[in-house]
């Protein structure tokens, strides 16, 4: 959903171009030094400033706030309402209380989808330690072609998921795929990756892991640049090995970036849909056993036209992501450096 909002934002911000003609600067100039630069001995003016700010700050955030309200909050409220209704295919919601939720908690598909999504998330999260290691390698001062490698790792992230999925679908093909051919060379008989329950979700998650590496490495790369080089110099003088430097300096000082990645990765993993849809295909017999939460939502809302039920699924997804994120924020104080 974030895509749509990012696209909408510039249009929504258009009115702010009129801001320079606003009278605010004049008012402030007339009142003398206020704000952060103001002398501490002027509580009166500080109080007045608070009062006089009036509607202006609101006006400035209005374009952004309007976008959030119109494209996030309002739809969420509507979804919450529709999840309590039986929704006609062509509109017309009839209130049905908690029926959808009652049906949902009794639906085995929900738990299967939740289990699959958790498995996917767990596998994609393995990408973070890998990215930490790769990013620190890329950050070695004497590495040649560093930007070339960076581009290589980042390419899958900027490529369209559907395009990536098409290629991997061919790689995973049981009879004619490259993967099973290579496995065959070393004497392993690969499974039919995308049509074997169990293997299918792992296959999709490996692609998810691979394509998320680039983004993680960019974030971690920025984090690495913030670690002062003298720490490494000092450690080297004290005789610390490369591995010890990595363990005792790099990793602890990267924890803010890692924590950020953890939250982002969990959220985006819970939204798994496009990769799954495109790699497995909608008539794949393993799909009922391999579907993710969002796929379950899609199936109910857009294939089976049960939009009230789909809204209830959406609310459950929202709740799960909300709880998962809140828990992470709570625990990050314990392990994040300076957090």
């Amino acid at each position: 959903m974030s895509d749509s909002v990012q696209q909408q934002a510039p249009a929504g911000q258009a009115p702010s171009s009129q801001a320079p003609s606003s009278p605010v600067p004049r008012v402030r100039a007339g009142r003398g030094p206020v704000g952060r630069g103001g002398a501490p001995g002027q509580p009166e003016s500080r109080r007045r400033r608070k009062r006089n700010d009036g509607a202006w700050p609101w006006l400035f955030v209005a374009p952004l706030a309007a976008g959030i309200v119109v494209f996030y909050l309002w739809p969420i409220l509507q979804t919450a309402w529709y999840s309590l209704t039986t929704f006609g295919v062509f509109g017309g919601a009839t209130f049905s209380g908690l029926d959808n939720y009652r049906q949902l908690v009794a639906d085995a598909a929900l738990y299967r989808a939740l289990g699959n999504t958790l498995l996917y998330t767990a596998i994609v999260l393995l990408g973070i330690p890998i990215a930490v290691y790769l990013a620190s390698l890329l950050n070695l001062p004497d590495l040649r072609f560093a930007s070339f490698y960076r581009v290589l790792y980042f390419l899958p992230y900027v490529a369209m998921p559907t395009a990536i999925a098409m290629v991997w679908r061919i790689i995973y093909n049981g009879d004619f795929g490259v993967l099973n051919y290579v496995l065959g060379l070393v004497g392993i008989e690969g499974p039919y990756w995308i049509s074997t329950p169990g293997a299918a979700m792992v296959a999709v998650a490996l692609v998810g892991l691979w394509s998320s590496l680039g983004f993680s490495m960019i974030v971690l790369g920025a984090g690495l640049k913030n670690i002062p080089p003298d720490l490494y110099e000092a450690a080297e003088l004290d005789g610390a090995s490369r591995w010890n430097q990595f363990r005792s300096i790099t990793v602890p000082l990267l924890t803010p970036s890692i924590s950020f990645l953890l939250i982002i990765t969990v959220i985006s993993s819970f939204q798994l849909f496009d990769l799954l849809y495109a790699i497995l295909g909608s008539t794949n017999p393993t799909l009922p056993r391999s579907m993710s939460l969002v796929y379950f939502f899609y199936q109910a809302g857009f294939v089976q036209n049960d939009k009230g039920y789909a809204a209830a699924i959406a609310m459950v997804i929202l709740l799960i992501i909300g709880v998962a994120t809140a828990v992470q924020f709570r625990f990050q104080r314990r392990w994040v450096h300076g957090g």
Binding site: D3, S4, Q78, F90
Partner: peptide, 19 residues
């Protein structure tokens, strides 16, 4: 499969528009 793109806005669109 191309409908995937639409799903990005799926929730919002489905519900606001249908409303």
């Amino acid at each position: 499969g191309r409908r995937t793109a639409g799903l990005a806005t799926g929730l919002a669109v489905a519900l606001t528009v249908a409303g």
